[in-house]
């Protein structure tokens, strides 16, 4: 799914790209260039697909993995201000333990768009994110002990917060009227994992992944809708 999405994005971008030169003949004044022209909101199909593939339609209400990611961006000249939000809920049913982790996360940060003059407002971007997750987890497991008696342990963390940073890159292309698609890849780093401070060392951080990993990669394939505030007019430098 990821590969086909990536190829589709490339293909659509190649279709769109030549048209920008033809349609961008009109030289506009730049007085509106810092006024946002619209907001784009979207949903990640990768996390949505993972839940549905694993649990079918039940993924909406139950299942051992549920993750939803949403994003929104507004354009400010050649930059996008991004806000992402996600919900995560997973239960690990292992032969030796049951671990439950649930929480939410948000990510904010700018992108710089290298296709700023595209009249369809397509984007090829790199950006930064600050991310923060609020979550809870618990585990129950049996243990054996040669001296003391065997037993069971249940421990939980009721309120945890972790933060990290991300470097992102990706593309967004218009496919039909208000409908957009695109992907983003991200490198996540510098996380605080709450490893040493709790009776239960967190295994997973919503939005980040494996808590003990110093860095993680992420990938999303977005389906987005754009709500325009005004007509978008790319700014073309005047010829001297």
């Amino acid at each position: 799914m990821r590969t086909s999405g990536f190829i589709t994005s490339i293909f659509l971008l190649l279709i769109v790209w030549p048209s920008q030169a033809q349609e961008a003949d009109t030289v506009k004044t730049d007085k509106l260039k810092f006024v946002p022209s619209g907001i784009r909101v979207g949903m990640d199909l990768v996390s949505f697909g993972q839940a549905v593939v694993k649990n079918g339609i039940k993924a909406f209400t139950q299942g051992d993995v549920r993750q939803w990611k949403f994003n929104a961006d507004i354009d400010i000249h050649r930059y996008f201000l991004n806000f992402e939000y996600g919900k995560f809920n997973r239960q690990w049913n292992d032969p030796y333990f049951i671990y439950i982790n649930e929480g939410s996360f948000f990510k904010v940060g700018p992108d710089i768009n290298f296709l700023q003059r595209d009249p369809d407002h397509s984007a090829l971007f790199v950006g930064l994110r600050y991310a923060q997750a609020s979550y809870s987890d618990n585990i129950v497991f049996d243990y054996t002990n040669d001296y003391w008696s065997d037993g069971a342990i249940f421990v939980e963390n009721t309120t945890l917060k972790s933060s990290w940073y991300e470097i992102t890159t990706g593309m967004k292309v218009r496919i039909y009227k208000f409908l957009w698609t695109g992907y983003s890849a991200r490198f996540k780093f510098k996380v605080n994992d709450n490893h040493a401070n709790n009776e239960l060392s967190p295994y997973w951080i919503p939005g980040y992944g494996l808590a003990e990993a110093d860095s993680r990669w992420g990938f999303e394939y977005w389906l987005m809708f754009r709500i325009p505030f005004r007509k978008y007019s790319p700014v073309i430098p005047k010829e001297k």
Partner: peptide, 19 residues
């Protein structure tokens, strides 16, 4: 001492750390 429960990996199970 403090008792810390930690998942080694999903396939390896849990260990109990005394810190």
């Amino acid at each position: 001492y403090d008792v810390v429960s930690r998942i080694i990996t999903e396939n390896c199970g849990v260990e109990i750390l005394f810190t």
